Computed example of a mutant assay.
Amino acid sequence: MGNPSGGSDRGHELVMMGIPGVQTFISEAQSTSDLANASDVIARVARTAVDAVQKAGGELVIPASLRDDVPTPNRIVALVPEGRGRAVAEGAAAAVRERWDGWVRTVLGRDVEVPGFPEVMWSVAGPGDYPEQWQRAGRALAARKRLRAFDAPEFAGRQPCPLAPRWPAEDAPEGVPQHMKKTRISAAGWVKRRWHALPGLPSSRSGGFPSTASIASAPYRAELLGLEADAPPCRLGRRAPA
């Protein structure tokens, strides 16, 4: 369809999409599992957008190829037929929102609004030479990111999430381990917390995670093991009677 090497592509539009707030979403974590799961959630969100673009007939530029064992980047570029750019981008954003709402329902058992996340920002450059399309789409997307929509949802009488205070805290869903039953975090936080534990979620990992304490103490424990290996052998014998 297109010519990403730099030639003319006057019959197609270039769609450029990005998912903002990635670092903030990942950093709002309390454990190693939160960090790993947040990264996986973002990759799955991006993959949802990519699948929607391909289903609508778009030709991917970024990512150039898709593999299940490689996370999808949060920047997506595609060439689409002329006049279809806006519809393709809006369709991808709607697919992401629908998929996210389904994950929230799977975790919490009900619909819970998460204002501003996930958000898909996009721009469309009309037909023209590919390098020029890329420049126009990139400038437009950068301008769109600077023009942020400041949602101001009101949650009167509710406790803010201790990890992400822009959202209200939610009670622990059914089926959580005993040590989580008194935890109250946002709906987005619960998706991260339960991402690898529920079969209805597309997590790339189903096992456990090393604890934060075990990772922090790993160098110290390695040093102790090294000292033990270098120490002379100790023989235990029977003490002679007095």
Rank of each mutant, 00 (worst) to 15 (best):
G175M: 11
G226W: 12
W103S: 05
R99Y: 00
V41Q: 00
P219Y: 09
V41T: 00
G175S: 10
R99V: 05
P127C: 15
M16Y: 14
D68N: 15
E223A: 02
D230N: 06
D69I: 13
M1P: 12
R136Q: 10
P160W: 06
A197L: 12
W190K: 13
I62F: 09
P219E: 09
G116L: 11
F155S: 13
S31M: 02
L108G: 06
Q23P: 08
P153V: 06
R75K: 02
P4C: 14
G237M: 01
A87V: 15
M1Y: 10
R10G: 01
A231D: 14
I19C: 01
V112F: 13
P73N: 08
V15G: 09
I76P: 00
F155A: 05
V15T: 10
L141H: 12
P219D: 08
Q133W: 02
A216H: 07
P4A: 15
D69C: 13
A156Q: 15
A43G: 07
D68F: 15
A229P: 05
A143I: 11
V104I: 04
V176Y: 02
P232T: 15
N37T: 06
L198K: 07
P4E: 15
A78L: 08
D34C: 00
L60T: 08
K145N: 09
R99A: 09
A87E: 15
P165I: 07
A142K: 08
A49N: 11
Q133L: 06
P160A: 06
G21V: 06
G85I: 09
R105N: 11
L66R: 12
I185K: 09
S211A: 10
R194W: 14
S39A: 14
P160F: 05
A169F: 04
V61T: 07
W103I: 01
N37W: 02
S203C: 10
L60C: 15
I19P: 00
L35N: 09
A43Y: 01
Q159D: 14
A93R: 06
V80Q: 03
V41F: 00
